[in-house]
Design a binder for these strands. Sequence first.
DNA 1: CCCAGATCGTTGAGAAAGTCAATAGTTTTC
DNA 2: GAAAACTATTGACTTTCTCAACGATCTGGG
Lengths: 168, 168
Amino acid sequence: MQTSTESTVAAPRTSGSDRLWATTVGGDVAFLLARANALSLANAHAAAAEYGLKVRSYSVLAIAVSDMRPTQRELSEFLQLDPSQIVALVDELESRALVRREPDPNDRRANVVVATDEGRALFAEAHAKVAGTERTTFGSLSDQERMTLTSMLRRLADAPDAPDALPA
Amino acid sequence: MQTSTESTVAAPRTSGSDRLWATTVGGDVAFLLARANALSLANAHAAAAEYGLKVRSYSVLAIAVSDMRPTQRELSEFLQLDPSQIVALVDELESRALVRREPDPNDRRANVVVATDEGRALFAEAHAKVAGTERTTFGSLSDQERMTLTSMLRRLADAPDAPDALPA
DNA sequence: CCCAGATCGTTGAGAAAGTCAATAGTTTTC
DNA sequence: GAAAACTATTGACTTTCTCAACGATCTGGG
């Protein structure tokens, strides 16, 4: 979202479109959620980019580093991405020698993704930076609030899928 | 996200990849935020789709209906979309006679987007449905909590952009 | 007044991301 | 042991993103 080259500038002060906050969508929780996410994503992305990573690859690397030896299908499910995207992601990380594909001992169809030492080293650095931007993104919240937010978001994640047929 | 034809089923119970929640990203606020947003988006999208709208077009329509006569540039800025995407969005809505482009009296370069009567009628229906899914998405939160969430998210939205050079 | 520079909407091209079907190899189930 | 289900991969295709260019218009300075 806009690569702040140097002078972000001029004076877009109160952006000029702020009056639109008074609209229906402006008060919408879902809309706010999307905005906050976009912001958070942009910040994290900028940080990860310094290490040649996108948020996606960063996430995959993070999981690999955790030594849980996930299969690609597990990654696909957990990250909610199409299996083919996982292939591309792992391909890229593997080509940079940050992770390795190892055969799953329990299932010869499956690969298990593990981090290399380089991967761990890079992740350590990247993680510090990314965690830093988290403090930037959520800086306007107190620690207490951030915990509240986290717990609420986690509950949303666990919530049931749209039941699709609810009594009108 | 998966068109629940009929038997969504079998037993994906505890998805099988839930163990990955124990990873670094699993506890990440930003990650939870992304997930919650994806969920919210999927639900809203499903609802809007019943009226031939996507979340994007729904948003534009919502703003048009509000009678604030936004220019396309204002839409672009507020929705954080490239101007060319606004063109496409408005083109589509206009082709369905839901909105009209009117010349901005103050600036002959600019168009102002206004809703037609059909647009208003359709939005009224769509809005009801979409607001309904919001109750689904955020159903696991009490009204009190939802308000807290809203206020926190709004504060995040107002937060400053990444300052880009923070002491390492 | 007039010109330079910025701004608005539009178009078009190219990259990135998302979606989906098909396939080889492997496991599961009966 | 054969059929059905599953994993990773590939390829095609659509949608979305990002950016540069352009005509028309507005703004500010000389």
